[in-house]
Amino acid sequence: MPYEPPTHTVERSIRATTGARIVAGVDEVGRGAWAGPVTVCAAITGLRRPPPGLTDSKLITPKRRAELADTLESWVTAYALGHSSPEEIDDLGMTAALRLAAVRALDGLPVRPDAVILDGKHDYLGTPWQVRTVIKGDRSCVAVAAASVIAKVRRDAMMAELRGDYSVFGFHENAGYPSPVHKAALAELGPTPHHRLSWAYLDGLPRWRHLKKIRITPEAAALESGGQLGFDF
């Protein structure tokens, strides 16, 4: 099924209404995985015509995606990746971990963007960044689509590197997402150092349930230490 190619419409609108000169597209991958980092790519593309076939990374075959990522890395004006580790995801929660990874990606760019196009409807970046959220931005916006492809290919490659030590988990094929092979290995061997230990999948593994990590929220920590969470009594 053919898809409409992404455009620079949103970026042009941001430039016209805010005066922004440098606009970055930002997308993440790995949010729903059970293992591995969450990875964010920030890409600056300017207003040039994108390479043929560019769209949301999920709509491209793995072979074509890898080829396109190689093309994009030399085509974009600049890009950078940011990661949050499984430990950071466990300690901070996914929203804060996403923000941390996104800030790392944006800080890794050679220039600071004046504005950011963020895929989805939730702004997990916040101040001081000027953010425009776009649902399905990885399909409609050139810079976000480019970030989507690069993030997906590079994170998949990171997970594939674990094949030597953890081949039974199938990370080279499932990239840390739940799959029959992954679930079977977890049930038999338990989580690896690359697994997120605060996630609900551990509730269904009686042998390994004791390893589940309970994240202490700031509110709970304040109560535990006798704090009043800022309330006046």
Rank of each mutant, 00 (worst) to 15 (best):
W34E: 03
A97Q: 04
D91Q: 11
A146E: 02
D123R: 14
L109C: 02
L125S: 10
E224G: 12
L54F: 05
W129A: 00
E88V: 10
T7D: 12
L98M: 09
R64A: 15
E188V: 13
T18L: 08
R112K: 15
E28P: 03
E87T: 11
T55R: 12
W129L: 09
W75C: 03
K136Y: 10
I117L: 13
I14G: 09
A146Q: 06
G19D: 04
S74F: 07
I60S: 01
R155K: 06
T127W: 03
S179H: 04
G19E: 08
V134C: 05
T45Y: 05
R12M: 13
R21D: 13
V111C: 00
A105R: 00
V131F: 13
D138R: 06
E188M: 13
A157C: 10
G93V: 08
L106N: 07
E88W: 01
R49H: 02
P128E: 04
G108M: 11
A69G: 11
Y201H: 12
A20E: 06
H195K: 05
V26N: 10
I44Y: 03
P218L: 04
V103T: 11
A187M: 11
A187D: 14
V142R: 03
A151G: 00
T55W: 03
E188K: 14
A160N: 01
L100V: 01
T217E: 13
V153P: 06
L189A: 14
A35H: 03
D70R: 15
